[in-house]
């Protein structure tokens, strides 16, 4: 594309990317935090103002999901350690396992929603209340953000299979890992919030 020629005219395109990619991601993460911050504050406001607010036990599947996402973060990070030492094979394996665990997380969430539904906790419709809708809202939007994470891990997996990463070039892996850790942290926050506050 001709339009990005400014960066190509100078040898600094890579430098600019190296300098700015992580801050861009961090600030994007801040805005996602504020999105979920808005919703979890909304839960607190709703809980305080509605006489019909009710609490319920979280489905067991959500606990499984928590374990899965923590495991995936650890494994993915081990992949980064390895590529920094020059071992790309571990990264290949780690990113593929992370990918599988990411999909398993979504499946586990699905079982969680199914469990909620069969217990009469509905997302929408005449039998739903704001208390029951919120849990679906935050968990579904977490999964939507996780889909972006899965795409980024997929890119890392493909690129590592093509041996695109080495000791010097780990930026893509780091970006993906920052976002993946964030998704894990976000889930743990939501899990604890839904369990103890909502």
């Amino acid at each position: 594309m001709t339009s990005v020629s400014i960066n190509n005219q100078f040898d600094t395109a890579e430098d600019i990317k190296k300098k700015t990619a992580k801050p861009l991601l961090w600030i994007a993460i801040v805005s996602i935090v504020m999105l979920f911050g808005g919703w979890t504050s909304a839960v607190i406001v709703s809980k305080g103002s509605s006489p019909r607010w009710f609490s319920f036990d979280l489905p067991f599947a959500f606990t499984i999901s928590t374990l899965i996402i923590v495991a995936s973060s650890l494994i993915f990070h081990y992949g980064l350690f390895s590529i920094r030492k020059g071992n790309s094979n571990v990264l290949k394996l780690a990113s593929i396992i992370t990918l599988v665990l990411g999909v398993m997380f979504i499946v586990s969430q699905y079982y969680g929603w199914k469990d909620l539904y069969s217990n009469g906790i509905f997302a929408t419709g005449s039998k739903s209340t704001s208390a029951s809708s919120f849990i679906y809202l935050v968990t579904v939007f977490h999964v939507l953000h996780l889909l972006a994470g899965i795409i980024s891990v997929l890119v890392v997996a493909i690129k590592s299979l093509k041996e695109k990463y080495n000791q010097e070039n780990t930026l893509g892996v780091e970006l993906s890992i920052i976002y993946w850790h964030f998704l894990g942290g976000l889930w743990i926050y939501l899990f604890l919030f839904l369990k103890y506050v909502a």
Binding site: G38, S41, A42, V45, S46, S49, S50, R52, W53, S128, T129, S130, A131
Partner: peptide, 12 residues
């Protein structure tokens, strides 16, 4: 509709 609050919107 049950359980919601229009004031919540104002806060957000």
């Amino acid at each position: 509709y049950s359980g919601g609050s229009p004031i919540l919107f104002e806060h957000l």
